[in-house]
Simulated scan of single mutants.
Amino acid sequence: MGSCVTRRGFVAGAAALSAGAARPASAQALPTGTLRMLIGFPAGGGSDVMGRLIADKMRQRTGANIVIENKTGASGMIAAEQLKNGPADGSVVMFTPSATLAARLTNDSVGFDPQKDFATTGLVGTVQTAFAVSPTLGVNTFPEYVEWVKRNPGQANFGTTALGSFTHFVGVMLGNAAGVKLEPVPYRGAAPLVADLSGGHIAAGCGGLTDFLEHHRGGKLRIVVTAGGARAQAAPEIPTAQEIGYKDILIEGWYTFFAPARTPKPLIDAWSREIAAVVADPVVRDRLVTLGLDPQPGAPDVFAERMDHDLRRWKQIIDAIGYKPT
């Protein structure tokens, strides 16, 4: 009986969501012409794969001409600066992880302020930060990796997909908690880091779960721990840092779409509505979960409040670590 009720509830909920996703006759549509989606990381990384997945479904849903532009470098901040100076007519958005904003917190010279220069379309989903090791090490758990580092102190470094972000800080925090000093090595996104982990050119790496999960399954790297509050839905076999004894390590990142801050609210709402409908599509949702994202599409105003809260908390963590950009 319980399963029947659950099924009916799911169908009813899906129907309601579908109805809610339909554009009201009076609502603003997406702009006509070419729509640009900026991604601040290389093709093939987690951010790129998810952004293209959403863009493809949006093209099918709306008929819009959406072009992906990979503006790589500086932990996604090059794309962010281009977005800030982009046209505020709804024709350009940026798909970005929270790592880019966290990196901005450590560098006062960055030419954008996310709270002043961008308008969010709402939360897309949350993601955990993952710590992975090269399969060439022959270790299977984080404690085993710590013992390996103690035997090989000359290789006590890890790659980070975004220097000055939580893919940097989580690695440092894990090392500190385990009593080993781990030095970050910056990479221009996940794809080159994955290649070096697979080839044994670096012993460990830290990035978004979305960047690593498929490569973990394919044996190119081995995720040994995440920084989430609970095991990831897509990877229940991977323990959290809290589970293995590091109670203070808990960081949950997220993904959102930003537009330039001057973009009119009706156009922001149009993007938000279409993105939410795409992310709620069962095929897209299942694929995002497989990639390591927990889809949670939400309203722009609600997410803006969360973003403000998270930025304040992350600044406290950065100050506690004592990180100073070079």
Rank of each mutant, 00 (worst) to 15 (best):
A14Y: 11
A19P: 06
P24A: 08
S26K: 11
G33L: 10
L35I: 14
M37D: 10
G44V: 02
G45P: 03
S47E: 13
A55V: 12
D56T: 07
T62N: 04
G63T: 08
G63V: 04
N65Y: 09
I66C: 05
I66Y: 01
K71M: 15
T72K: 12
G73S: 09
G76C: 08
L83R: 01
L83E: 04
P87G: 13
T100M: 07
P114W: 03
T121L: 12
L123M: 06
G125Q: 02
G125C: 02
T126I: 11
T126C: 10
T129L: 09
E144V: 03
N152I: 05
P153Y: 02
N157R: 14
F169E: 00
F169W: 02
V170C: 04
V172Y: 03
V172D: 00
M173R: 09
N176I: 10
N176R: 13
A178M: 07
P184G: 02
G199P: 09
I202M: 08
I202G: 06
I202F: 08
G205H: 01
G207F: 03
T210D: 04
H215D: 06
G219R: 12
K220E: 07
R231T: 11
A241V: 07
I244D: 07
K247Q: 15
K247I: 03
E252A: 13
K265C: 14
A276F: 08
P282G: 03
V284Q: 00
R285C: 11
R287A: 10
V289M: 03
L293R: 00
P295Y: 02
P297A: 01
V302Q: 15
M307S: 10
H309A: 15
D310Y: 13
R312M: 13
I321A: 09
Y323N: 01
Y323A: 03
K324F: 08
P325R: 15
